[in-house]
């Protein structure tokens, strides 16, 4: 049988980027524990619209954990109390009947709030634009045997590439550092032959952009990898440090 719960939501409301925000409390009733966290917020918003109130603004898109749009700092954790899932994959069965849930936007100097629970994550796009791509011609699809790549490297590159750029690492970091994101984006290319051509330039430009945009300095606490919905490892951060030091030595 379907189980339903009643909840109190403490939600951050902020009219725009410059307005002063504050928490508002809302009650939602008869929420199915099978529904997702975002479906629960949809129900809240319908309720608010019916009461002629402004719905809560939050980011979402694919709702299947691959686009990186959803965010939300739920009860003291990015993407909420479940491990290795995004907020859209978080289910209401993770909450108890009568519980008060605190919902906040990502907080960091690099991600200013735009409205309510939506933050501006353009900084990540700027970091990618600074070098997170391959600009050399890699041709058509080559024969799989023409360019042998060790399985270990292929796996690690794939793991790094699973980063969806949601920003949970920055939100979780006590230093507001974007090193896990940048290291994943550098690693996925640094491990493969196509990416090696521009490796030095990429590491330097992406780190410089990250510093310029006001992200903090990594102190290796590892909070980012604990909260990463894709389980991206901080071994990538060591690789980024290595790539960066190597690039600077070649200057």
């Amino acid at each position: 049988m379907e189980k339903t719960i009643n909840l109190t939501l403490k939600v951050w409301r902020q009219a725009n980027a410059t307005a002063k925000g504050a928490f508002e409390s809302y009650e939602v009733k008869n929420i199915s524990t099978d529904s997702s966290f975002l479906e629960m917020l949809d129900i809240l918003n319908e309720q608010l619209i019916n009461e002629n109130k402004e719905p809560v603004a939050f980011d979402h898109d694919c709702r299947e954990g691959i686009c990186g749009m959803c965010s939300l700092y739920v009860n003291g954790r990015p993407h909420g109390p479940d491990d290795e899932v995004t907020t859209c994959q978080l289910h209401m069965r993770k909450f108890k009947d009568g519980e008060t849930i605190t919902i906040e936007p990502w907080r960091s100097a690099g991600f200013p709030v735009i409205k309510d629970l939506i933050v501006n994550r353009n900084a990540f796009d700027s970091i990618i634009a600074a070098g997170g791509y391959v600009s050399v011609g890699t041709g058509g699809v080559p024969d799989g045997n023409a360019m042998p790549i060790p399985k270990v490297d292929a796996d690690e590159a794939m793991d790094a590439a699973s980063c969806i750029g949601c920003g949970a690492c920055v939100a979780a970091c006590k230093n507001g550092s974007a090193m896990l994101f940048v290291s994943a984006k550098v690693s996925q290319l640094a491990l493969l032959p196509q990416g090696k051509v521009e490796a030095a330039r990429r590491a330097k430009n992406m780190v410089a952009k990250m510093d310029e945009l006001g992200f903090g300095n990594c102190t290796n606490t590892g909070a980012c990898e604990v909260e990463c919905p894709k389980g991206v490892s901080i071994a990538n951060i060591a690789r980024l440090n290595r790539e960066y030091l190597k690039a600077k030595c070649l200057d």
């Binding site: 928490f23 700092y73 009860n75 907080r107 100097a109 970091c173 230093n175 550092s177 903090g216």
Partner: peptide, 10 residues
């Protein structure tokens, strides 16, 4: 400074 001026209530 990078952490931002608003602390997490949660």
């Amino acid at each position: 400074k990078a952490r931002g001026s608003v602390k997490y209530a949660g």
